[in-house]
């Protein structure tokens, strides 16, 4: 089998195997923290950080970790990095850390991260694993950014805290609430399905 060019591993995460829109992984933080674009971006970056670091470590140790305890080891590795990220955010951006709340620790059980370790990092070389993790992380962040932008613009009339809607615009508060998150994500997934089908035919 001919090996794909390494850059392919990065690009696939952006759209073809986008963790949120196509693989439907890591939906809990996607929905929960995307009230504002800032939060969405922070969550994306944090998750990417954890993903890249743990992929690095897992890929490095892939021949060392015994098969029976691999899942447990992955979880410990991930949990460690999550703790680091959590403390970092709490120290430097306490505002964001507060608004993300327990969803930072919940990155541990984000099935996207564990899924990448199990499906990719534990089977591939370091470079490829890093590219894959970066791609997935970027795809995740991108999806979060779009979702949180839509919700923030409609729900609060702002984008990254800047007023961008016209003065008489009355905000759709529902977009900041759970129903708005579900409906927006539903539409995004549907749009992705639609575009993908268009591309195939």
């Amino acid at each position: 089998m001919k090996e794909k060019p390494a850059i392919q591993e990065f690009i696939k995460g952006l759209w073809d195997e986008n963790p949120v829109l196509v693989q439907l992984l890591g939906l809990c933080p996607t929905l929960a923290v995307t009230v504002s674009a800032e939060n969405g971006l922070a969550m994306g970056v944090a998750a990417t950080f954890v993903l890249v670091c743990s992929s690095f470590l897992v890929s490095l140790l892939r021949n060392v970790i015994p098969n029976q305890v691999r899942i447990a080891s992955y979880i410990v590795i991930i949990a460690t990095f999550v703790t680091i990220a959590d403390r970092f955010l709490a120290a430097y951006t306490p505002e964001i850390s507060k608004s993300l709340g327990p969803f930072i620790p919940l990155i541990i059980v984000n099935c996207m991260i564990l899924g990448r370790q199990e499906a990719f990092a534990s089977k591939n070389k370091l470079g490829r694993s890093l590219l894959d993790a970066l791609g997935m992380g970027a795809g995740f962040t991108l999806a979060l950014l779009v979702l949180s932008s839509v919700r923030e613009v409609l729900g609060s009339g702002t984008w990254f805290g800047m007023d961008i809607m016209w003065a008489s615009f009355s905000t759709w508060k529902v977009m900041s609430l759970p129903p708005g998150a579900f409906l927006t994500l539903g539409c995004m997934i549907a749009a992705a399905n639609w575009i993908n089908r268009r591309r195939q035919t």
Binding site: L24, P179, G186, C187
Partner: peptide, 19 residues
């Protein structure tokens, strides 16, 4: 509708239930 089959419609229903 085909684009909404599966996860997308589940999200819409979840949104309605959340309402």
């Amino acid at each position: 509708p085909r684009a909404f089959k599966g996860a997308a419609i589940t999200m819409v229903i979840a949104g309605s239930l959340a309402l």
